[in-house]
Design a binder for these strands. Structure first.
Lengths: 140, 140
DNA sequence: ACTTGATCTAGACCTCGCTCTAGATCGTAG
DNA sequence: CTACGATCTAGAGCGAGGTCTAGATCAAGT
């Protein structure tokens, strides 16, 4: 879970945006919302410098968001990590609960998929018959 | 794809809400938005009476929504069905495109799942070691 | 007739998760 | 030095997808 780069120099917000797929707006927004573990370093001029830790954390955030974790939970998780060791059990519970939700989601999607596939089949068959069906159920 | 009921009597909005899992508010909202194929019948007093066709259509809507189809696409689909036969090819395209999106979604979720599972493993191991790790990467 | 609960309409309101704007500043290339 | 693009802050705005409210009406039980 480390950036493929060999270099360890901190990155600007634009580069981080590219690497994470988040917009620069979203990156600033996430920071404001307290979704990051630590405060992001700044240059003397006030520009953000992201370490590879920051980027790794963001990549995890992206995965969690992608799988439907609400920002509030992400924030909670970040707070736990921020407040250091001693709460690993709670972090584990949070992640595991989310994993279960993801599993449920996958199952639901697979069910949807099969319904859709069935419907696609119905249409395909209908079209193969060459529009011959006058007795065609309008709800399908 | 037919309601398990033997009876064919039309249903009130509350019963349809129960059967579809949509709220009565959402049912009225969907209707306003033109997501239904036909106009819902009314009693002399103005109450909606849903036929089993309506309910079946709604059940499909629920599946499509659950799998992330936007209301706009659902509306488009409803319009195609409403305008009768002759556009089955387009309906098929719409559904098949959605199925592909669902497949992509499932794949993405499975990737997320594996990242999360890995992270859960990291925590579980850490806890099993009995908090013994001082050299504990803070981003995990 | 009266009460109670479900339903009606129109439209305001809400949450979520960003996205965009304005106006200022930084930093690098020429 | 001058441009020019990238970044800064604070805060407004937005699109999706409903949810909720008010005030009226309907329908069924007693």
């Amino acid at each position: 879970m480390t950036t493929t780069e060999a270099a360890e120099q901190p990155l600007g917000i634009g580069e981080v945006a590219e690497r994470t797929g988040l917009s620069v707006h979203a990156l600033r927004f996430y920071e404001r919302e307290g979704l990051l573990v630590g405060p992001v370093q700044r240059t003397s001029g006030g520009r953000r410098r992201y370490t590879s830790f920051d980027v790794d954390w963001l990549l995890i955030c992206v995965k969690l968001r992608e799988s439907g974790m609400p920002l509030a939970d992400l924030k909670h998780f970040a707070e736990l990590v921020r407040h250091g060791p001693g709460n690993e059990a709670e972090r584990l519970r949070l992640l595991d609960a989310h994993r279960q939700r993801v599993d449920a989601q996958i199952q639901a999607l697979e069910e949807c998929r099969s319904v859709i596939t069935w419907k696609v089949g119905v249409y395909a068959e209908h079209l193969a018959r060459g529009e011959a069906g006058g007795l065609w159920d309008p709800t399908t």
